[in-house]
């Protein structure tokens, strides 16, 4: 796994311009009124970049060279989840800390925003990685289709009950510990299912 991480660091280093632009955007969002957007969006973007690295790895000319190297498919999947989630979550927390200082947010509010960012990152990676592993070179099309389905479901869920007794009202009035618990459970389940699907897809893949 150490070797895979070294490889990813080299690949990330090749995207120096992107990293600089992303950092600049992070700072812009953090110091602007759109700080919540910045905290939520930037880690998700970072995770998406990691998904693109998987797509590159699984492209036809590279995957046969790559998977003869001394690591198992399980180690590969594990490393990709680690690299996609951990730095992005750390980034989310750090951005929120800066934002909290700049905009004088309460600890409660900061915690909730950071938790939402972590959850969104985990959910993004949970969808991104198995989709990329399964669809490989056709992942762009698959991604569009899946995003369309996800947004449609989200829109339906939101539109279903917007009244004072509706789902949205229940969520916003729930105590913080319940929201944290539901979020953690949702993230854990999504991640577990994602890892199982990815491992199975890699195990059965003809490289």
């Amino acid at each position: 796994m150490k070797g895979l991480m070294a490889r990813d660091m080299i690949a990330m280093g090749k995207n120096r311009v992107f990293l600089v632009v992303m950092l600049a955007l992070c700072l812009f969002y953090t110091f602007s009124d759109m700080y919540v957007t910045g905290v939520m969006l930037m880690p998700m973007l970072f995770s998406t970049v990691c998904g693109n690295m998987v797509r590159n790895d699984l492209s036809a000319p590279i995957r046969r060279t790559l998977f003869t190297l001394p690591f198992s498919r399980r180690e590969y999947a594990g490393e990709k989840y680690l690299v996609s989630i951990v730095p992005a979550c750390v980034l989310a927390v750090m951005l929120q800390m800066v934002s909290a200082v700049v905009h004088r947010q309460s600890i409660t509010q900061s915690g909730m925003i950071a938790a939402c960012a972590v959850l969104l990152t985990v959910l993004t990676v949970s969808v991104e990685l198995p989709v990329t592993i399964i669809f490989r070179d056709r992942v762009q099309i698959a991604r569009v289709c899946i995003l369309a389905v996800v947004f449609a479901l989200a829109a339906i869920a939101v539109s279903l009950d917007m009244g004072t007794d509706g789902l949205f009202a229940i969520i916003t009035s729930a105590p913080a510990w319940a929201l944290y618990g539901i979020g953690a459970l949702l993230g854990a389940v999504a991640l577990a299912v994602s890892v199982m699907v990815s491992l199975r897809a890699l195990r059965t893949a003809q490289l």
Binding site: A11, K14, I62, T65, T68, P70, F71
Partner: peptide, 16 residues
């Protein structure tokens, strides 16, 4: 795998 060296046709390393 550490004791094996492999070269397959139509393969390459990362382009960049």
């Amino acid at each position: 795998k550490r004791d094996v060296g492999a070269v397959l046709a139509d393969t390459s390393f990362d382009a960049v």
